[in-house]
């Protein structure tokens, strides 16, 4: 009857582990890029630090406050981004972000899933 669900509790737990136990949690001492942003409607906040070598992402950290979806998205995005060119990551399609998350993202939760990517896109390097 057109009534589908978003995520089950096991998927949720996985996301939560991603968000809370992520090796990418924290800050860098001297980041080449630091960007932060929030989702005004739900209050989620993310800040991302990157260390870059010749345009490639060498190290990445994030600090997150909010729902598991936005937290997990930050973690999987940084995992994927490591070793890749910043420009390429900034141009990542939203569909790729959903794929990295591996869960069905309902329309109402799209802003949660894309917050980390939006923050990365807003970031400018110091050079």
């Amino acid at each position: 009857m057109g009534y589908t669900h978003t995520m089950d509790i096991n998927a949720f737990k996985q996301l939560r582990n991603h968000a809370e136990l992520s090796p990418y949690k924290g800050k860098l001492k001297k980041p080449d890029l630091r960007a932060s942003g929030d989702n005004l409607l739900c209050g989620d906040k993310i800040s991302i630090d990157l260390a870059l070598t010749k345009g490639k992402i060498k190290e990445a950290k994030f600090i997150h406050q909010g729902c598991v979806l936005s937290g997990a998205a930050a973690s999987v995005l940084l995992e994927y981004a490591k070793g890749k060119e910043l420009e390429k990551i900034q141009n990542l399609a939203p569909e790729k972000m959903f794929k990295l998350l591996g869960v069905d993202v309902s329309p109402a939760r799209v802003p949660c899933a894309l917050l980390a990517l939006a923050v990365l896109r807003s970031g400018k390097t110091h050079s």
Partner: peptide
């Protein structure tokens, strides 16, 4: 647990509540 996550998990059990501001 963030309210959005609660609403998603309740939705999984056919319970419709609102989360947000």
């Amino acid at each position: 647990i963030h309210p959005h996550d609660i609403a998603s998990l309740l939705d999984e059990q056919n319970i419709a509540v609102r989360a947000g501001n």
